[in-house]
Design a protein around this nucleic acid. Structure first.
Lengths: 176, 176
DNA sequence: CACTACATGTAAGCTGTTACATGATTGG
DNA sequence: CCAATCATGTAACAGCTTACATGTAGTG
């Protein structure tokens, strides 16, 4: 169900095409919720059938802009305000970090270094996004999430650096 | 596929029953990867059919302990060392934090405060777990993950406190 | 004119959730 | 002896991935 609320929120903030929504997931929401276009288009159709979003404009290349309706915004609000939060994270990176601790130091170093490179690439991407966001008039929801990412990632990076230092000094926990 | 690697890792670290694995997911792995028993039992059966785990003991109440075989550990190692990390996070809490920014300040406060309470409960739980882990001989993989959580959560907490302070001062971004 | 980015969709198969179902052991 | 916890499973359904499929508009 989370996907539909994500779509309701985004289209409530500003009318978007399915394609644009897919890009938003890909660029800014990827560390909160992942979704691909093949999931987004059918869900938009369903939401539209249920009157929770509506087409508010058609552009070039047969594109359609969707916006959340009053009913849609209401459904979103109810979900946020009335549903107890649940903790059902699925984050392959975190899982990998956990499992990596089980490898022998040589393999562990390989994996940790690659994870670090990935994280740093992601951090740069976020910094770029933050600059873009600052220069344009972007809803503050995005700025907040970018801020959260910019606070959390350096901490994860610190953990990785420590783990790498420890693996380099050749410590315990061999799997093989 | 992540579930099977998680199970291979856990059973490689120490033989476990399906029930124990379900508890581990529930208590320590929940902020990396979530899985329920109805998914764990069939997957263990499949892994066992494929020779990647094996039954290493039977206990009370028809319980069976599984351990990763050499082949299973090899499959896990290959996945960790040879697969490029992907970023397909699904974290409802993060999504909610994002969407909450779209609500009017009154609702936003309600939701943020509840998220804060949840996070703080989770932090306490982690602290308890950290103590348990320190007193017993637990594999350091768990200690590492707890450490990561203990580093990351206070940062998220800080973000939440800032967001709450901002909402209290009655700032922008009303959805309705 | 070719390439890239824009733009939307479908279908088969796999993964994950919710609900149902059953039974054993321990502690109060 | 009753409730809670331990312990394992299945089935229907919902959600997600991968691959296929098609076409448009802008840029060099």
């Amino acid at each position: 169900m989370s996907l539909r609320y994500a779509l309701l929120g985004l289209t409530a903030a500003f009318p978007s095409t399915g394609y644009e929504l897919a890009r938003i997931f890909d660029r800014s929401l990827d560390y909160a919720w992942h979704a691909s276009h093949s999931q987004i288009y059918p869900e938009l159709k369903r939401l539209s059938d249920e009157g929770l979003v509506e087409v508010v404009g058609e552009g070039a290349r047969n594109s359609k802009s969707f916006a959340a309706t009053a009913a849609g915004r209401q459904v979103l609000r109810e979900w946020l305000v009335e549903t107890e939060p649940v903790r059902k994270v699925r984050d392959e990176s975190s899982l990998r970090l956990f499992l990596t601790s089980l490898l022998e130091p040589a393999d562990r170093l390989t994996v940790l270094r690659r994870e670090l490179a990935h994280l740093e690439a992601h951090m740069e991407e976020l910094d770029r996004l933050a600059k873009e966001t600052a220069s344009r008039a972007t809803p503050s929801a995005f700025a907040s999430m970018i801020d959260l990412g910019q606070r959390v990632m350096p901490v994860t990076r610190g953990w990785l650096l420590d783990a790498i230092a420890q693996a380099e000094s050749g410590l315990p926990d061999a799997l093989t």
